[in-house]
């Protein structure tokens, strides 16, 4: 099909990549639009499915300068969009040994002393492509409400946009990382049945049964498999 013919069917959108003008067909994400324009991505592209945070992108519109934040692989291109990717942002990453910590605010403040300087400007929340209430979990962190931090930050893809926008130079996503680990290790109750099973296995409880299956002829094994009891939902 000739290009002209198609162009009649498909709406072409004007967009601006780092302020340079391009035209792309409707129906692409920011990521595929970049590729459509001929960019071969190295940075700024990861899982291509909204889980990794590699493709954080800042955008606005020629007619509306308000900044918006999205993942390039999860955001449709729109008419008059101006996009810039921010694939990397410098932050300090403190070192700690999770096995030696306690799940307390003091401990977190010891590692991230600047946490106390958050004055609630809400830039972080506004900059989150995952729509996380970042400022809320920062105040939950200061209150020591670690279950709330874990729940509210659970969709964090650690793209770094909150840190990029924080006037205090905080790194909310790293702070939440530490707290989620403290929560998972110390505050969630341990699974007893898991511990028991680990013990049984280490004692070799299942080895003989496995050896028996291992030497079962294939036909019989298939039969055992087809006939096995399936736990109802």
């Amino acid at each position: 099909m000739a290009e002209a013919e198609v162009a009649e069917k498909v709406r072409m959108l004007d967009i601006y990549i780092m302020e340079k003008h391009y035209q792309v067909p409707e129906g692409l994400t920011i990521q595929t639009a970049l590729e459509y324009c001929g960019y071969r991505l190295i940075r700024g592209c990861g899982c291509r499915g909204g889980s990794c945070g590699a493709c954080a992108t800042v955008y606005n519109f020629t007619h509306d300068p308000t900044l918006r934040y999205g993942l390039a692989c999860q955001t449709a291109v729109e008419l008059d969009m101006c996009v810039v990717q921010i694939p990397c942002f410098p932050t300090a990453k403190p070192i700690y040994d999770i096995k030696k910590l306690r799940p307390t605010v003091d401990q977190v403040l010891g590692i991230y002393p600047d946490l106390a300087t958050c004055f609630g400007c809400n830039n972080c929340t506004q900059s989150c492509p995952q729509d996380i209430e970042v400022m809320d979990f920062m105040s939950a962190a200061l209150r020591g409400d670690f279950p709330a931090v874990t729940a509210e930050s659970f969709e964090c893809v650690m793209c770094g946009m909150c840190a990029a926008r924080c006037p205090q130079g905080l790194s909310p996503y790293n702070i939440a990382m530490l707290i989620r680990r403290l929560h998972g290790r110390y505050l969630l109750p341990k699974s007893k049945h898991l511990e028991e099973k680990v013990k049984e296995i280490e004692e070799g409880k299942y080895d003989a049964e496995y050896e028996k299956l291992r030497s079962t002829p294939m036909e019989e094994l298939r039969h055992i498999y087809d006939e096995r009891w399936i736990e109802p939902k």
């Binding site: 999770i98 680990r181 929560h183 998972g184 969630l188 699974s191």
Partner: peptide
């Protein structure tokens, strides 16, 4: 993984 801090 639980001991490393994964929230199962």
């Amino acid at each position: 993984l639980e001991d490393l801090g994964v929230n199962w």
